[in-house]
Design a protein around this nucleic acid. Sequence first.
DNA 1: TAAACAGAAGTAAGCGTTTACGTGATCTCT
DNA 2: AGAGATCACGTAAACGCTTACTTCTGTTTA
Lengths: 333, 333
Amino acid sequence: MVTVYDVAKAAGLSIASVSRALNNQPGVSQATSQRVAHIAKEMGYEPNDVARSLVGKSTRTIALLVPDIANPFFPELVKSVQAKADENEHVLLLADGAGDRHRVAASMTVLRRKQVDGVIVVATALTVDADELFVDIPTVFLDREGPRLGASVVVNNEAAAFAATTHLIDLGHRRIAHIAGPIDLEVSRQRLAGWRRACSTAGLPSSDDLVVPGNFLEDGGYNVGTHITNPSSACTAVFAANDLSAIGFLAYCADNHLSVPDDISVVGFDGIHLSRYTTPKLTTMAQPIVELGRRAADVLFDLIRGEKSVPRIVLSATLLPGASVASPKAVLQ
Amino acid sequence: MVTVYDVAKAAGLSIASVSRALNNQPGVSQATSQRVAHIAKEMGYEPNDVARSLVGKSTRTIALLVPDIANPFFPELVKSVQAKADENEHVLLLADGAGDRHRVAASMTVLRRKQVDGVIVVATALTVDADELFVDIPTVFLDREGPRLGASVVVNNEAAAFAATTHLIDLGHRRIAHIAGPIDLEVSRQRLAGWRRACSTAGLPSSDDLVVPGNFLEDGGYNVGTHITNPSSACTAVFAANDLSAIGFLAYCADNHLSVPDDISVVGFDGIHLSRYTTPKLTTMAQPIVELGRRAADVLFDLIRGEKSVPRIVLSATLLPGASVASPKAVLQ
DNA sequence: TAAACAGAAGTAAGCGTTTACGTGATCTCT
DNA sequence: AGAGATCACGTAAACGCTTACTTCTGTTTA
């Protein structure tokens, strides 16, 4: 490995001058600066970021903790965060599996040791007393309220779920099931709450038998199909807590010769790219995924630069129309 | 930040002893070792990995370069690589956007500076003379042949594409279109070649008008729908170079009231998890995604540990049956 | 009992940078 | 023309750790 020493020797200078030249800092003449740059390139010198991080304050690294990278929602988010990281000349460390509390703790220990400049924590399962995990390291909570301390960028899940459900109600549906997410996630509870409020506001049932537990995955949505489409349940529509669940349910319907939306309407949540390519195309409450990532990253870099305030940014979701909803065949009087 | 010095002072020891104690190395008594451990914990000491990396050889970090993390194939791969990284007490750096040559070069520079221990490079676009990008840093090419140097873990794309196409031929299809991937990717070319060989082996046409260019994304598959289903093309089946393209095509068919597989059969490639939940369920040539990631990581860590040989591992894909293929309605004599 | 040795601890160098400070040489201004 | 300012560069410390080497104490061995 060629170091500043080597370059310095070759240039007949001290390492200090070389360092200054390479970082075009004042204190070196234009001429030497160019000469050094040339020599460095010639020798194939690359600065060692580890050493640089040790002396400087920054590692130029941020981390993103996601519960499940296999859920298409997150890759889309990753892309947008990474773009911002690039922009700020930082590198992205990905930590998957944040759905599990222990893994979150383990990850944070590793990240702290690695001296990452900051962390974006997404929709993870946290114990109530998780505050200390994030102490001393700039953190933005995304799509989940952080512990007491901490900035956050969230979508108003409750309101969005309310709107999604109301959309179905306006179309004439009177019994609407809900495929919930993992109930230990705040977002799941909020979406459930929104569905419930919409139902009760309209004087419709929102009893527990209309809530079927999902897992935010396709199989979750698939497996509850039987329960929802059971004639005795008499549902004409279903609001899924996320798109993957909705897609699973769609598959169930297809396998069982139920037509969506003729037999049953489906509304998803997330607005993942794939929701534009399901059969039928999914009507979904779309989160501003790219915007979420961007804003979170912006806030994080503000924090990293020393910003003291810890903002709480709330973005809103918008209904993305598809072909998976319709008025119920027989609107009950 | 609490350092070894602080711990040493608190324990009345030298930093050397503290270091030894903390890493349970010989040279400290059992008693002191425990005492130090206790004090360190008490003080909330966390070793600084940056410093550790600077003195030691390793940063305990590996990187994964993927062309497009939004393609569900990659998150599944990421998961498996990350599991292996965990196992080896390494952290995963994700670099997206490796579909672009310039970004690959840029990423490698950053990674080299960051002193990552190794890199897994997936299916990226590389210039022919890209060798030098990876010199001096353990590299495994996944799903793509590396430059001259370099270990690789690949799927026999040509053979797999051949088998997928043959499956359609065996069912009686006589005109089979191919939705290709970006043609500057080796994998795309190989899959195209497999399709072509299958067709010509069976004495079927494989002319260029049967090859429609895709982009490995849903919209690519969707947009070529018109061309493929045009009556004058007379295709009864299509083999897509990846699942996302197939899913896009499925969506096109649904939008245009074409039944899959009654009107046209579709075979995908990749075997992403979502292919189990399309309507109809996609028949696809499934890559052993998890295995690919695992093997690549294994090879990489071997390399990191000093292994000299650079293996070339070839895995094979298997046909995952779905409901998107059938015999053509009218088998031509 | 002296010599050899093992164990526990300390000293200090070094990893590759950045940067505060010091030192001449050249320049500016009155 | 001499004092101060400016410039280009060098010296050395610091970042937080690991580790080769040294030192000291106490134990074993002949």
